[in-house]
């Protein structure tokens, strides 16, 4: 994305001033990247290096021992599979429910439409802790506690997705929808074969957002899984490494685990970030 830029007025941006701005930019990038770089470097240290005072920055003899040790302590494969199931199914559900509701709110006219939409949007601003206690009991009473289903089902629809889809589907020409109706296409067919491709970049952004959010989410799985460790996603398994971390010997271990958990969302981000930035800019969600 190339952004329009002011043509600097004569004398407005002296070379010295631009030099300062470049330095500032580099400083921000370094501070921003430092914790992650340090995380990866520490995961490659030997236990002795990891506990040295003052800290050593670059491991003398990089080794993957910490990663080996992590896989002995927690079932990494199982945790990754659980995370992938939670994030994958939740994301698929959100895409489908958001497309359908976004289509209805954008293209149908019906009584109470604005009221229903307003109530839906209001839930976007609700911190999860407010409903956590009864939700925990509610999910238990329908028999979903301590299972992946309990983690997934309450999150299959969300207001952010509905809002985003309504914004973008409103921009799909009515003629396109009308033409498909005249051809005898059902409403579901229209949503998934005509509207969905027309808003593909926004769908990609929503997919990234939902997947990363639910891959990373901690509070709800921790609460609903109630110590059923075979169902733990990687972020919860990772938190169990900390008990080994009380002795500083295992800093490398925790950093190796953290590195593993960070990789999937970051890799996804690298591929999808351009959709994300464009979508936020175009959605009007910043109040314009």
């Amino acid at each position: 994305m190339s952004l329009p830029v002011t043509t600097p007025a004569p004398g407005a941006a002296s070379p010295a001033w631009r030099g300062i701005l470049y330095l500032l930019m580099i400083a921000i990038a370094v501070v921003s990247a430092f914790p992650l770089v340090w995380m990866v470097l520490s995961s490659l240290k030997t236990p002795a290096e990891a506990m040295q005072t003052p800290p050593v920055w670059i491991p003398g003899t990089p080794s993957l021992d910490a990663y080996q040790k992590v896989s002995e302590l927690i079932s990494v494969g199982r945790s990754f599979a659980n995370s992938a199931l939670i994030a994958g199914i939740t994301t698929a559900g959100i895409l489908v429910t958001s497309l359908m509701a976004g289509y209805a709110f954008a293209k149908y006219r019906f009584r109470y439409r604005e009221v229903l939409f307003a109530i839906t949007i209001a839930t976007m601003f609700l911190p999860p802790i407010v409903t956590l206690i009864p939700l925990y009991r509610l999910v238990g009473s329908i028999g979903l506690n301590a299972s992946l289903a309990g983690v997934i089902v309450p999150n299959l629809a969300n207001a952010f997705g509905i809002f985003l889809m309504r914004q973008f589907i409103a921009g799909v020409p009515d003629e396109l929808v009308e033409a498909a109706r005249l051809d005898g296409a059902s409403e579901f067919r229209i949503v998934f074969t005509i509207v969905a491709p027309a808003v593909a970049p926004a769908l990609a952004a929503l997919a990234l957002f939902a997947f990363v959010y639910h891959w990373n989410s901690y509070l709800w799985p921790l609460t609903v899984l109630q110590g059923n460790s075979s169902q733990y996603p990687i972020v919860i398994s990772l938190s169990r490494l900390l008990s080994y971390n009380r002795s500083a010997v295992n800093t490398g271990l925790v950093m190796a685990g953290a590195t593993l958990a960070v990789l999937p969302p970051l890799i996804l981000f690298v591929f999808l970030q351009r959709f994300f930035v464009r979508t936020i800019t175009a959605s009007g969600m910043t109040g314009q």
Partner: peptide
């Protein structure tokens, strides 16, 4: 994009 849990551990 980094899970908060990893942020907490690293910091």
């Amino acid at each position: 994009m980094v899970p908060m849990i990893a942020v907490a551990l690293v910091f």
